[in-house]
Nucleic acid binder design. Structure first.
Length: 517
RNA sequence: GGCCCCUUCGACUAGCGGUUAGGUCACUACCCUUUCAAGGUAGCGGCACGAGUUCGAAUCUCGUAGGGGUCACCA
């Protein structure tokens, strides 16, 4: 029997990294076993439903390379794959449970249930549905339902004994039946709850392995009870550890405490390869200890039993570091250039000169952790003129005479290549008898507007004679117009403006160009 | 609080009875160096605790502690 796994997200908002994480492991397990990976949309909560969410989830899965074999908009033999389109199926199965006495209709109102909980709280007993509707005569249940009285359908659960299931990762897990309430299967709006829909769909869709997050462990016995009621064989269960916040207690990953949106990482210039690689190291490791590997390598080596159970903290620093490694080591120069190009366009640049782009990326990629940072630093290679911050102004003013000399020297330089530029610079400082840095820093600032930039020789060589001379001219003009380190008022105003601009920029949502579609 | 699960450096992890407890990120120092990075070298730092089993426990058992999850007509 072929392995079938599934990812069953609820379309309620931003595609969650936790969804991507569980999808990754389901995908890898299915592919490794030569099986199928199914996407099922659990849209049974009308209140939290977000129409656009489904498409965004599919988009994120594709971006990560985790395209499902079956799912809404994809097709497959077991559709429909949206639970809202399977209502008749649930209805039919609920009728069967009702007929066989495994379930009953309960007519308590929300107010009544609230009162019940309050009372339980007051008396200090465990809260939860107490089974008060169980005793109602089935004929009476039917009559009231037919009369249009609002009701839910609940599972009749045993009061004594234990229900046990086998978790592939933790062994047998046993829960006292007294802890398992007569849970709602069908809501009063006719929609199924997760518990009911998930069991029916997994069975009907032929899901062989339910690989999901740890938060489902305690409700799995309830699902087992449902499988028993239907007289179905349950699938194999494996519960993955929960991704955690980087807070002191390592609580379950949450939007409040960190960025949980997969799209957001994409928008920050995190590569899908890096995100997948990072997620794969959450609770899992390569047998040979490799830490950088592709999705294909992950699938080839994947083994559910290597999953470790301690909840892994989602550490941004590690993600960014991994992304940086992809940028400078894993991907080819051409590949990185291809990825950044849309980001440059987004910033208003024209990256169509491929050789220039390659040079720019080559020199910048050891200095950037994300595509966004790379693109941002590339600005000074593409803008018409750079602007100088306060520090840059000081350095320019200090180097005025050198810049004048260099402008002349560069304009006379016959072969404008790396070696020639290097020789020129060294000859010049020797003649002037000044330290190299004293000359190079003003030049660097003139070319880029900032003191933190690649090697000057690289900058000059990449920018070429034309750009170099233009920048030098602009810098000298700026100096003449009085860019003062002698005017504290003006410097202060500049600093404030820069701080304000930086703050505004930080707030703006970063662009997300289409890349690697 | 009841129930369930978990527990190796700050973080991610290797380890599955005998290891100087290994690697990666982060951090620190040094080297390289025209700045910033990158790179190189080194360092810091861990088996939660207590019993038991065993010739021998990070590895097996039990207990304690700590952490997490869950107790909805949400998934």
């Amino acid at each position: 029997m072929p392995v079938v796994t599934r990812i069953a997200p609820s379309p309620t908002g931003d595609p969650h990294v936790g969804t991507a994480y569980v999808a990754l492991f389901n995908y890898a397990f299915a592919k490794r076993q030569g099986g199928r990976f199914v996407l099922r949309v659990e849209d049974t909560d009308r209140a939290r439903y977000v129409a656009a969410a489904e498409a965004r989830i599919i988009d994120v899965l594709r971006w990560l390379g985790l395209a499902p074999d079956e799912g809404p908009g994809i097709g497959g033999e077991h559709g429909p794959y949206r639970q809202s389109e399977r209502l008749a199926i649930y209805r039919e199965h609920v009728d069967r449970l009702l007929a066989e006495g495994h379930a009953y209709r309960a007519f308590e109102t929300a107010d009544e249930l609230d009162a019940m909980r309050l009372e339980q709280q007051r008396r200090g007993i465990d809260p939860g549905y107490d089974g008060r509707g169980r005793g109602l005569d089935p004929v009476e249940q039917r009559r009231r339902a037919d009369a249009g009285e609002p009701h839910v359908v609940r599972l009749r659960t045993p009061d004594e004994g234990h229900t046990t299931f086998h978790d592939l990762l933790r062994g047998d897990v046993s829960v006292p039946n007294a802890e398992i309430r007569d849970t709602v299967l069908l809501k009063s709006d006719g929609y199924p709850t997760y518990h009911l829909a998930n069991v029916i769909d997994d069975h009907l869709m032929g899901v062989t392995h339910v690989v999901r997050a740890e938060e489902w462990v305690v409700s799995t016995p309830l699902h087992v009870l449902l499988y028993q009621a239907f007289d179905w064989t349950p699938p194999v269960f494996a519960h993955l550890p929960l991704l955690r916040n980087p807070d002191a207690n390592k609580t379950k990953i949450s939007k409040r405490k960190m960025d949980t949106s997969a799209e957001s990482y994409r928008a920050q210039g995190i590569l899908p390869e890096a995100l997948v690689n990072f997620l794969a190291t959450m609770g899992w490791s390569m047998p040979d200890g490799r830490e950088v590997f592709t999705l294909e390598e992950f699938v080839a080596a994947f083994d559910l039993e290597r999953v470790s159970l301690g909840g892994p903290v989602f550490d941004l620093k590690r993600l960014r570091n991994l992304n940086a490694r992809y940028l400078r080591e894993v991907l080819s120069l051409e590949a990185v250039a291809e990825r950044v190009a849309p980001w440059l366009v987004e910033r208003g640049h024209d990256p169509s000169d491929e050789d220039y782009l390659l040079d720019v990326v080559d020199v910048l990629r050891p200095r950037a952790e994300t595509l966004a940072e790379l693109a941002e630093q590339a600005d000074y290679f593409y803008v018409e003129r750079v602007s100088y911050d306060a520090d840059a102004r000081r350095r320019l003013a200090a180097g005025q005479s050198y810049l004048e000399d260099l402008e002349r020297e560069f304009s006379r330089l016959e072969f404008f290549d790396d070696d020639a530029i290097d020789d020129l610079l060294h000859d010049y400082v020797q003649r002037q008898a000044v330290p190299l840095g004293k000359v190079l820093m003003p030049l660097r600032v003139a070319l880029t507007g900032t003191s933190q930039a690649p090697a000057v020789v690289d900058l000059v060589a990449i920018m070429g004679r034309g750009r170099t001379l233009t920048r030098l001219g602009q810098a000298l003009q700026a100096i003449q117009e009085g860019l003062p380190d002698d005017d504290p008022e003006r410097l202060k105003a500049e600093a404030e403006a820069a701080a304000k601009a930086a703050a505004a920029k930080g707030k703006r949502r970063p662009p997300m160009p289409a890349e690697r579609s």
